[in-house]
């Protein structure tokens, strides 16, 4: 999903910076509140950030014959919401832009939007909807994380398509081209990511269910039910 350094012409790279900035700034504001009022949840924040670090470093082979990586943002979005997760995404993308020449500083706005904002928004929305509808918690987490991963790559394809419309066929033709490169490759990886995040979620329920209740991620009722089922 990384748009490489210099690969977005003006005005697109500026536009994505402008769109991403409010999310990240509000995320930092929320982070400060978390630091002040919910210190007990900070280890969980570290784990969510670490998850983005690990998963986005793993380049996995996919059915299309190319390699891509999961994003790991689903966990942060479910636990802390999309705004705080956008800050986590920014940190990882900065690391990769500076030390790995993966992504770039000029394309940071666009990459933060796809990985740090669009994906987490999808994860957060699906998790909230699924929980409200009473869907099995692990199925909900799986769907939220997998579709967040997929959404990130679809957004990247759209970002490139609008910046580089094909001469024949325009935006839709190039969306098809970039979509094949990114989105199709991503489907199996999204499934793996969803499963792994569901598994981690299970372990968080096992060790610190009280934090999930306090962060309003799960109700005490559903924690009790899940722990009973897993006992």
């Amino acid at each position: 999903m990384h748009i490489m350094e210099g690969f977005l012409p003006g005005p697109w790279w500026q536009i994505w910076f402008i769109i991403s900035a409010p999310f990240v700034i509000y995320g930092m504001f929320q982070l400060r509140r978390l630091f002040e009022e919910r210190r007990e949840a900070l280890p969980l924040l570290a784990v969510a950030g670490a998850f983005v670090f690990v998963l986005s470093s793993l380049k996995l082979p996919s059915v299309t014959g190319s390699c891509s990586h999961p994003t790991g943002t689903g966990l942060g979005a479910i636990l802390f919401g999309p705004f705080i997760t956008s800050v986590l995404g920014l940190i990882v993308l900065l690391y990769q832009a500076l030390f790995l020449a993966h992504g770039g500083l000029t394309t940071l706005g666009a990459n933060v939007f796809s990985m740090g904002i669009a994906g987490p928004l999808v994860a957060f929305g699906i998790y909230r909807l699924g929980t409200k509808a009473g869907v099995n918690t692990f199925v909900t987490v799986f769907l939220a994380a997998a579709l967040a991963d997929l959404a990130t790559y679809i957004v990247t394809s759209v970002q490139l398509a609008v910046a580089f419309p094909a001469e024949a066929g325009g935006i839709f033709a190039s969306l098809a081209a970039f979509g094949t490169v990114f989105a199709i490759t991503q489907i199996p990886l999204a499934i793996i990511e969803g499963l792994i995040i569901a598994l981690i979620f299970k372990y968080i329920i096992a060790v610190r269910p009280d934090l999930l209740v306090r962060l309003e991620v799960l109700s005490q009722n559903s924690v009790n039910k899940i722990r009973e089922a897993l006992a």
């Binding site: 999903m1 990384h2 748009i3 490489m4 690969f7 380049k59 082979p61 996919s62 299309t64 014959g65 190319s66 390699c67 891509s68 993966h102 992504g103 990247t156 490139l160 580089f164 190039s174 081209a177 970039f178 490169v181 990114f182 490759t185 991503q186």
Partner: peptide, 14 residues
């Protein structure tokens, strides 16, 4: 060489 990165493939198209 097979199994290149998707990021690079997109850059090639561009």
């Amino acid at each position: 060489e097979a199994w290149g990165g998707a990021d690079g493939n997109a850059a090639e198209i561009i």
